[in-house]
Design a binder for these strands. Structure first.
Lengths: 216, 216
DNA sequence: CATGCCGGTTTGTGATCACAAACCTGCCTT
DNA sequence: AAGGCAGGTTTGTGATCACAAACCGGCATG
């Protein structure tokens, strides 16, 4: 399948385009866990040679978006339950800190934007669309965390999201829930009230709720 | 300069060797901040072509060991004070958690090993050898955190170390201290006592002491 | 029917090359 | 003397190729 996702990129290197597009697909759950990829296949999809495909894949492996077998074969990761618990704990640590740093800078326009995004999350849930749900959910979090003015921490959080992307998709497929995430409402409420302990708790709860999906 | 650090690697791809060696050099402060590198230069050093050099560099850029200019030139990062503060905060978050998870599994043999490593840290300080100091210091932390059985968190912590490597070297050069790190003793004492709050405080203090170097 | 083997095929690795852009050095102009 | 401009040189990018190892059929053998 030819994707032709490159609209005559002026100035953007081919490997960067491949990297960005693949990264977005993985992060948003477009690929299932264990999905195998080949350099020649990626090159074919993006109409480039193996060289840029290799560089894009190498970057993504370094970020944990893909795993690499001993023979160099790449595929999306199949996370063990222990690994999922770890990544959720990392999300809790980093994102609680990001939310806490964003709180003093969160003015009304931001809160209203979060409200709007949260409505999109609710729509994705009712439509049972995994990719849309994940994308809207991450946009909700990223919009809040951008206010923290902490790019290194945000990059770390995104790396964790990237590693969990395929697993999130699989988890969502198992999910029987049709109501929008309750903790997003708590996050918004805590932001409105300027309630820092409440915000920390709400973010931690929201971020670790996937574990309850897994266990229950 | 030819390094010839490849002893006829059987089964290890060339790009992997270049990656590992460069990564170690950056993490341990062998390169100053802002050090420029070229693909052809790396290839010459390691006696490989540009291809494996490019892949190794790409991985390291993805991990934050190098920064890349718009034109693709790579160099070690020159961190702003804000960025340093962020990375120190990340270290505090992640490493306190790692230490906390390692505590229940820390038996006497581990504590004695930490003691030995800490003596090496002290020696490096008296010799005023930045690379030895950084290497021994990181070995101290890694030895403890390995007991946490949390590979994803440890990988995150190492990524932060990697990003701070060149800056740590520069900071150490400015340092006028000749006594070994006081907080390592507190960490060991807390491990011996099974004192979790004390351990968390000691690790947080040790990890953020670089900031005091910076400010003072 | 299960198991091991053996062929072709696929795949990652690394080298080399052409090319364009960025870089740098020295000179010239003002 | 300072700024800009042109030359050659360095550098990253991407394509292509050769090669070896891994993979995956089916078939033969127990």
């Amino acid at each position: 399948m030819i994707l032709n996702t490159r609209p005559a990129d002026p100035g953007m290197p081919a490997h960067d385009h491949v990297y960005r597009h693949l990264r977005s697909r993985v992060m948003h759950g477009d690929l299932p866990p264990g999905q195998a990829l080949t350099l020649r296949g990626i090159g074919r999809e993006y109409e480039v040679s193996m060289t840029p495909a290799r560089e894009a894949v190498r970057r993504l492996v370094a970020e944990g978006a893909f795993t690499m077998s001993a023979s160099g074969r790449v595929s999306t990761p199949e996370l063990s339950n222990e690994r999922i618990e770890e990544l959720a704990a990392l999300r809790a640590l980093i994102e609680v800190e990001l939310a806490s740093r964003a709180l003093p800078r969160a003015h009304l326009a931001l809160i209203e934007r979060l409200q709007t995004i949260n409505n999109a999350v609710g729509e994705a849930v009712t439509q049972r669309n995994a990719v849309s749900y994940i994308r809207a959910n991450l946009e909700f979090h990223r919009t809040l965390y951008l206010r923290a003015q902490a790019p290194a921490m945000l990059a770390m959080a995104e790396t964790v999201w990237l590693q969990m992307g395929p697993t999130m998709r699989a988890l969502y497929g198992r999910l029987r829930r049709t109501e929008p995430p309750q903790f997003h409402r708590l996050i918004i409420a805590a932001l409105r009230a300027g309630d820092e302990p409440g915000l920390r708790l709400a973010v931690r709860s929201d971020v670790t709720q996937g574990l309850r999906m897994l266990a229950g």
